[in-house]
Design a protein around this nucleic acid. Structure first.
Lengths: 148, 148
DNA sequence: TTCAATTAGTTGCAAAAGCAACGAATTGGA
DNA sequence: TCCAATTCGTTGCTTTTGCAACTAATTGAA
């Protein structure tokens, strides 16, 4: 009998975050995935869709459809990468940039909810631990999948 | 610009876990949700579906369908709770119990992948932090939803 | 007791996600 | 140079999830 139920915690926090973001985005034409991608592009403007696939550990078809949706909504533009004409470079539009403060607000409130569960001196740990686990599990599962 | 991207880490770990479990369960008739529910029942045999909804922070329709699937697969039985005839009590069958060692193996391997990302002295923290965050975010999002 | 409000579970329907097959561009070795 | 293998992105299809409306049982207040 294992002591911690990591799967239950992770899945539960994930579902809670999706539900919370959906609530916060209800007045926009953005869905949680779109929001996630906009956040990623804020960190890495000019990324390719493949970059996002690795960055988020998400299926490329989901990215393709979210990007399409973001372009239609006027949040993102893309141009062919002239160094590699298979790939696009994705850029945030003015509309996306104008949405930054609201995005910041939603992120900060969510972070507040996440962190207020923890004693002050533990809060710093969480980000580091999750980041480490994310990077490692992502590459591991990718590797296992390949070996199959 | 926030330093940690909790949303990306959580969602990524979640997707990796789903993919990993799906791989491990490929020779069974169980899906990741079914697996999660079996784990929960191993901890709390006799739970109602509503108990699972809270325990996992998951939609009740998903539980209803997974339970149906588990009953059809012979992993679970249920009987009406005579103290409250709206609710069922869910019980694992012999078949589910026989599956325990395999379940244990999958869980241990997954836990191994999660934890090998972390230095020995941090591993203990992760479970506590996640458990705290899970319990708090779950109840918070539920409360916010209700206030709406 | 009676009946409105709440709760456990189900189901129809729509949205979201994942898989696999595909086309086009690129890479790298013979 | 040529062609097989790989990579980036798209699309059709299926599976999974979530929402909301519903039934049946329960609770509690008048």
């Amino acid at each position: 009998m294992t002591h911690y139920q990591y799967g239950r915690y992770i899945a539960g926090i994930y579902r809670a975050s999706q539900k919370y973001w959906k609530m916060q985005l209800v007045d926009t034409d953005l869905r949680p995935v779109d929001f996630q991608i906009l956040i990623s592009l804020r960190h890495h403007d000019g990324s390719s869709q493949e970059d996002l696939v690795h960055w988020m550990f998400i299926d490329k078809s989901v990215v393709a459809r979210a990007v399409k949706h973001l372009i239609e909504g006027g949040y993102v533009t893309r141009k062919v990468n002239e160094q590699d004409r298979r790939a696009y470079q994705l850029f945030r539009t003015e509309k996306a940039i104008a949405f930054d403060p609201e995005m910041e607000r939603i992120l900060n409130e969510w972070e507040g909810i996440i962190l207020e569960a923890l004693p002050e001196d533990e809060q710093e740990h969480l980000g580091d631990l999750l980041k480490g686990v994310f990077m490692h599990t992502g590459s591991t599962v990718r590797r296992i999948r390949q070996e199959d």
